[in-house]
Amino acid sequence: MSRPARTAALLGAALPLVVAASLALGANATSPAELWHALAAPTGTEGDVVVRTLRLPRTVLGLLVGAALGAAGVLMQGHTRNALAEPGLLGVSAGAAFAVVVALRVGLADSLGDTVVAAGIGALLASLAVHALARRSLRDGGPTLVVAGAAMTAFLSAAASAIVLLDAETLDSYRFWAVGSLAGRGAGTPAVIGPVVAVGLLLAATNARALDVLALGDDTASSMGLSLRRARLVGLVSVTLLTAAAVAACGPIAFIGLLAGHLARLVAGASWAWGVLAGAMVGAILLLGTDIAGRLVGGPGELQAGVVAGLVGAPALVWVVRRRGIAL
């Protein structure tokens, strides 16, 4: 069995474990027998209700959003050739978040579908900006790209602050959404973002082939008959869809894409096709993992997944930089 295939098998085995843990663990842990009871033959006991109405939608949401963030991270790292690229650090999530705040303020974000559209527009504009910067920073390995992303995030969050500070109602809904969390997002959320994530992942999968060719260099790739513009466009649309769905559903969650991309490349080797698959799986595992950790350490309340991701991700970023520098 090749290394990527072995990795995929390993991740495939880990994923159900994390899903089971996400269904079972929480303020009141559910025993395996109760869990089976709730899933296979529910009779409306308290445990059944908790598992089916609270933890199940939350787990499905975590799988979708984690996979979206992970795949988006891998794609961005591939296209920018920068080991630190991911939606959160490069300001794509901030673009989506800012657009959502504007939509909240003018009253256009009444339904989740509208929010997804708003987030999509913001993410698209922000990724276009990142894209323009990335094209110009290829030569120096692009550490400046991260700083540019930080600048964009600072700019967009200042703009968001200016809006929410003038309106207490928007501020109140904004702060619970901006922290990034899987909790209390409504049972219908997975159904709304599911199709968007699916299309995004599909595009990411087709784009991975192009990334394999692009890794040989732009000139070689175009001499092999690859349309650079089309490859970049597909990547851009895919990253936009994945980020928009994730941000609209859960708020901006940083670092999942970074870690997923990095770990995926570590385990999947040089193939981008395996990288995208592994990235989506690692992203789902990581997001569910942070969500479970947040439920367990939070005491009576809980620590949101976005916070846990930041606390784990920031040291991980430092680790990546110290271990292998910034260039991919």
Binding site: P143, F255, G306, A309, G313, A314, L317, V318, V321, R322
Partner: peptide, 15 residues
């Protein structure tokens, strides 16, 4: 870049 990392970790605590 390490500074940006510290910044990002701090920001998530703040939110």
């Amino acid at each position: 870049v390490i500074g940006v990392g510290i910044s990002a970790g701090g920001t998530s605590l703040v939110s």
